[in-house]
Design a protein around this nucleic acid. Structure first.
Lengths: 151, 151
DNA sequence: GCGACATAGATGCAATAGCATGTACCTGTT
DNA sequence: AACAGGTACATGCTATTGCATCTATGTCGC
């Protein structure tokens, strides 16, 4: 006669609490930030990530696979996101001379302007939805703990 | 002649580090867990969330709007997720007598079995991808810091 | 140089998410 | 009772995502 295990849970409660908190916090804060961007008539955060990487890159250009690594976007989603960015004139695609398989993605002036415009809204949203909730030492501690999850 | 502000950033570095860490950690861990579920031939995590709430509810039934609050799903996404769950025989929809607008969503035996089956995989994934990375006190600390973000 | 395999990127198609709106029904006011 | 909201849920349409696969090129061993 075995004990009925109502919750057959080999996972410590502290672990599940951390995981649920991680999901909740990310969703809630992300939704709040996206809402602020949308309210300002700006595109979603994914666009910003790509534009920022390009803006920081030497000559404002990167290969798609480099963007992919930096942003955690999947290959097929990035391929289409780049098409959308190009459609809005924020980036240009160029053929790569060295590697016949490759393309260059180059940020345009409009793209740099959009990145800057998005940052004004994004930074304020970050202050509102993250900065207001955490002091510097808490933020450091949080970043440190989260980093443990990603190696 | 004004100084060029290379990074016009009123947001403390510790705040952006925490935010980027939050996004990265959530995406990486979620992707790992979803991959484990898929590898086991099981449906995505969203299904589990709904099934768990139903399994825990008295008589295994909830109104859609109750599920909505508990899971952070949007109304329209939940409406269709419930249809998919019903299509697989994991829940049933019943008309509500008291409130003519309402429906009940009732978990079936198959639904309970699926929730249990998913938990065996999910709990192992949690141990692998979270438990292995954090000791109990770190997990508690992380949960506490994340909770600060969501009030 | 040729074949086998890897890498970079694109794309057709099915599934899901987002948005706006629609349909019922409820609740309060006059 | 009639009306004016408000709440609960569904749904048509479009946009995005996920998956599998395709094309093109590069690399390595022989």
């Amino acid at each position: 006669m075995s004990e009925p295990t109502d919750t057959p849970c080999p996972v410590p409660a502290s672990i599940t609490a951390a995981w649920i908190g991680l999901m909740r916090a990310q969703r809630i804060v992300l939704a709040a930030i996206e809402a602020d961007l949308k309210a300002a008539g700006l595109p979603p955060l994914g666009w910003y990530d790509v534009l920022l990487e390009l803006a920081r890159a030497p000559e404002g250009r990167l290969r798609p696979f480099e963007i992919e690594k930096r942003t955690l976007l999947t290959q097929y989603n990035l391929s289409r996101l780049i098409d959308r960015l190009e459609g809005k004139g924020l980036v240009q695609k160029e053929l790569s001379g060295e590697d016949g398989r490759g393309r260059w993605v180059v940020i345009t002036q409009d793209g740099r302007a959009m990145q800057a415009r998005m940052w004004t809204v994004y930074s304020r949203a970050l202050s509102d939805h993250v900065g207001r909730k955490l002091d510097a030492s808490s933020a450091d501690a949080l970043a440190g703990l989260l980093a443990k999850l990603t190696d």
